[in-house]
Design a protein around this nucleic acid. Sequence first.
DNA 1: TTATAAATACCGACCGGTTGGTATGTTGTC
DNA 2: GACAACATACCAACCGGTCGGTATTTATAA
Lengths: 203, 203
Amino acid sequence: MKPNARAKLLDAAFGTIRERGYAATSVDELCARAGVTKGAFFHHFKSKDALAAAAADHWSQTTASLFASAPYHDHADPLARILAYIDFRKDLVRGEIAEFTCLVGTMVQEAYETAPDIRGACWRSISGHAQTLEEDIQAAIEKYHVNGVTAESLALYTQATIQGAFILAKAKNDAGVAIDMIDHLKRYVELLFTCKGREGRRP
Amino acid sequence: MKPNARAKLLDAAFGTIRERGYAATSVDELCARAGVTKGAFFHHFKSKDALAAAAADHWSQTTASLFASAPYHDHADPLARILAYIDFRKDLVRGEIAEFTCLVGTMVQEAYETAPDIRGACWRSISGHAQTLEEDIQAAIEKYHVNGVTAESLALYTQATIQGAFILAKAKNDAGVAIDMIDHLKRYVELLFTCKGREGRRP
DNA sequence: TTATAAATACCGACCGGTTGGTATGTTGTC
DNA sequence: GACAACATACCAACCGGTCGGTATTTATAA
């Protein structure tokens, strides 16, 4: 049905770009890893940048289905769902660094100035994923009477923290530091919703 | 005293790498921006990777002197110093994105797998800067009787959050979102030190 | 059902420009 | 005259991208 080479190239891009970055990834290397020829590459993508933008979009779809089927939605309390989401993100941090870090977070640092299409695709990926958290956050804000924070801003903050955790893991060459950072994020959410003289933990 | 071309190349590296990333920055472009020739480049640096590692070390020194002379140290209370540090980081977020984002945070994403020397220099830069916060954090932890958090871990968390804020700013092409993220960091620190039935706000 | 036209998927040699790096000067200073 | 600090010319490898061609699938109509 769908062309095979295209899917293999997008899959190869996930791996190679997360390992070496976008600019350092050559079209030839991508083709070799995907087991296709250069002709196939430029048949499916009009340029290397177009492949990158397509990879970012494909990343959005891949992560969307991963998180949609994840178990953290199965809590009655919205705050419990948020905390379970954070735990789930922590559980994903295992194996090689290139296997759990974020494709679009890596790419956007190289492309934000020079490639607007890639930048836009990366932002759609990050903000689109953040939006899937907004409903739960909004419900928790109302249930626990938190003020001074918007659901959109807090949702983005979870993503910022996780992206930063990945940078530290890469710099230290140690996944453990990323887990520590996500623990801080969880503590922040707990404090935010259960402290500071707010009305009730269970309304 | 110190050779001129070397300093000009390191300065050019700060700008170019933060704009386009490391791999996309060519030696020729660096030389053109610095106003020196290729011969001068390879006289001072044995390879492009060596320049990158030297730039990361120079970044450490530059930021160290910037923060050493910053006014946030002038508070009697250690928590006030930490919060003033966060405010100072927020104040630095202005102008073009490439002017306030972090060189080593950008570079390490491209180099962590393939260039151990660059990765090490980037980690020294990040963790070294975090260490300058540890003394204040440790004092605040003791003064406000906070437990469950180490000074080292919280210091690194401030850096992770700020790095993540930069990624979001690049993706959205908007510095404002970075400021929002740093506001969350400040709120976390405030909650951490003043909530949850801890003994006293002022001992 | 089958002949055929048209579109799609893919191949791999090739191209001009760019890349990081080198080899060999030249110049100024102690 | 020794040595560091540059400058100039050059190179082989690699880069993204093109192009003429072929294999395979799909659409159409007799």
